[in-house]
Design a protein around this nucleic acid. Sequence first.
DNA 1: TACAGTTCAACTGTTCTACAGTTGAACACA
DNA 2: TGTGTTCAACTGTAGAACAGTTGAACTGTA
Lengths: 223, 223
Amino acid sequence: MSALEGLIVTRSTAAQQVAAGLASRIVAGAFAPGSRLRESAIATELGVARNTVREAVRILELSGLVRHEVNRGAVVISPTPEKVEELYAARERLETAAVSRAAEAPELDALRKAYEDLVDAAASHDVLRIVDVDLTFHATIVSMLHSSRIDEFYAGLLVELRFYLTVLSLEDREFEHPDDILTEHREILEAIESGDPAAAAQHVRSHIERNGKRVLEILHGRD
Amino acid sequence: MSALEGLIVTRSTAAQQVAAGLASRIVAGAFAPGSRLRESAIATELGVARNTVREAVRILELSGLVRHEVNRGAVVISPTPEKVEELYAARERLETAAVSRAAEAPELDALRKAYEDLVDAAASHDVLRIVDVDLTFHATIVSMLHSSRIDEFYAGLLVELRFYLTVLSLEDREFEHPDDILTEHREILEAIESGDPAAAAQHVRSHIERNGKRVLEILHGRD
DNA sequence: TACAGTTCAACTGTTCTACAGTTGAACACA
DNA sequence: TGTGTTCAACTGTAGAACAGTTGAACTGTA
């Protein structure tokens, strides 16, 4: 084992910083879904060249928060019913697959910890924090598949989902129901801990379906 | 149903064309794994500006064939043992999850057709075609999860894998063993068709593990 | 009023030139 | 063998320029 184990030098270019900055602004709701990112405006505002912004936008595309349209530039993704359904469908497949597998010790500890974080968060009534911890719980479930590639993929799905939830909860502050959330997650956790994969899968499935439907309802009720 | 159902106008920019061209050259083996894509050289050779090539490279990154390193530019991905293992692990998780679910009619037809294509391809002794049809069979398995997002993710994994296989089989022409391939795929297909998800999952698991190990051996035997 | 044609400012796609900073390899030196 | 030095090649970034596209405002017309 090297004395420099794990040390990684990360230099970041201007384009990467612009991309990171734009990403945080987007998830914070500074850009509405469907809105365009105008290159010249961003360039002059940040004091960088337009080329650099164009590159930043391409990097942003990797995170899935924007898509690039020819002659229109970067457009912030927006939650259509189809996309929300596809998102939740993917979640349901991955998470039920994960809990269906025999769970081993390390993840169970992590999952229980994630649940306890959720209990704390629920008490705080801080919606953003609840969402954050909630999604961490589910990422922990997926991590039981022991596949880094799938973990990365799932993390990307959650970035998207978190953005949608942020956007939607701005218009419906009563989105989260802490008690239901705790109950549903506890059911999942306990089914896994008691070594009942089938029950766990069923709880995961209905939990995700319920949530997906709720998001879709909020989405419909908006316009 | 509109008279223009499904019609999509796709204009492509120079950068997109450059990206597509580079992608096809890379998968064809024109750039060795680990080699750098020099911007100026590509720009002058293709008669486009360097900026355009830089953008093309960022687009290429979306396909996973290159990664961008600061001050070194675009580097063609290369098959390290870790990456190959992660790739096969992800495949194993997704495919076993897919066959574990009750399969419905439409996919079974598609899967049987994919198998018959494989029989044809095996007879041709055309390695590239065999690989192609083989991977299509597995993509069809994953499609039984009915998740477009997962299908896209899996397609990305296969792009990577196909590249690795192309690169490796250039050095080991005897990589494919048509008879074994047919046997293993037939076992999977028949287990699914006979409604035995557990057996199907076991066949998928051992098939993928066997293949992963073989690729790792070829990888080790190279250097 | 509803619809089609025109105009125009804003913006994207692309090129070109320029330069500072980084890298990697060759070379010299100890 | 290992450590400085030099240098050419290349990346990151800026800035200016221009053709082509888009969308919205405006005009004319039935």
